[in-house]
Structures are given as structure tokens and as C-alpha cells.
Write a protein that binds this DNA or RNA. Sequence first.
DNA 1: GCCAACGTTGGC
DNA 2: GCCAACGTTGGC
Length: 135
Amino acid sequence: MAHWLFKQEPSCYSFENLEADGLTTWDGVANALAQKHLKNAKKGDHAFFYHTGKDKAVVGIMELASDPAPDPADEKLAVVNVKPVKKLKNPVTLAAIKADDAFASWELVRMSRLSVMPVSDTIWKKILAMSEGSV
DNA sequence: GCCAACGTTGGC
DNA sequence: GCCAACGTTGGC
């Protein structure tokens, strides 16, 4: 199972919105590289939900509820359905991530504008550990 | 509010 | 097909 990180501005759509909805279609990914990543995702994969803007933190985990499919509004773009898994015990902030060299090569740090990116098992586990406050 | 990084667009 | 100019995004 692969892991991903999806970014969203919480004033636009937050993890709380997702929890309230139970399921949503993740669309509006226009960036070519982000699209490439999104199309590699599979139903059942897990993804972090990252809040940009004021929060700048990983706040929750979601599961892909479908394989990538063409956006009805734009056939060239892929969209995917996601459902919430759980909210992190503590958000893992960008500042905390940047402070740890283990994340230095991660796209989240290196390419601030990328909205969909892969997450290695190592990083996935480390973020989870940090969210539990044990690192 | 400003700046830097990156993507996209348009002219050649 | 290449490159410069411009716009947008996201962090500080």
C-alpha cells in the first residue's frame, strides 16, 4: 500500500469538513506533477491531509475510496474519492518537519507548491510517531 | 504584506 | 521548439 500527502487550504476544505461529509471527491488538482502522483494512487491507499496557510500542518489521515478517475468537469484531470480515517492526536507542523533532517529531501519541504506527493514508509511512520508525541 | 519558487503563456 | 515575461501559490 502506498502513502500520499494531499494539501488543502482549510478555509476551503478542512479535515473537519471531510469528517463531517464522510466522503468527498478530491478534485481541482491542476499541477502536472501532482496529477502524475494522483494517477499513481490506488483505492485503499492512505494519505495525510495537510493544511496550508495558517495551520501548515499534517492534521489527519484519509483513505482512498476509489481509484483515480477522470474529472467529469475536465477529462484530462484525475480526481479521487477519499474518506477520513482519523484525525491525528497532535498536528505535525511544517516547522517540526523542517526541523528534522530526516525530511530534508521530502517534496513537502523542497517543493512548497506541490499539492499531491508520495510519502515513503519511513516518513509515514515518522510523522505518525510525531503525531503521537513520542518523538 | 512581501518575497521566492515554480508553472504557464505568448512571442519569436 | 525555445525563452522571457507574467501570474499564482504558499511560506515567512
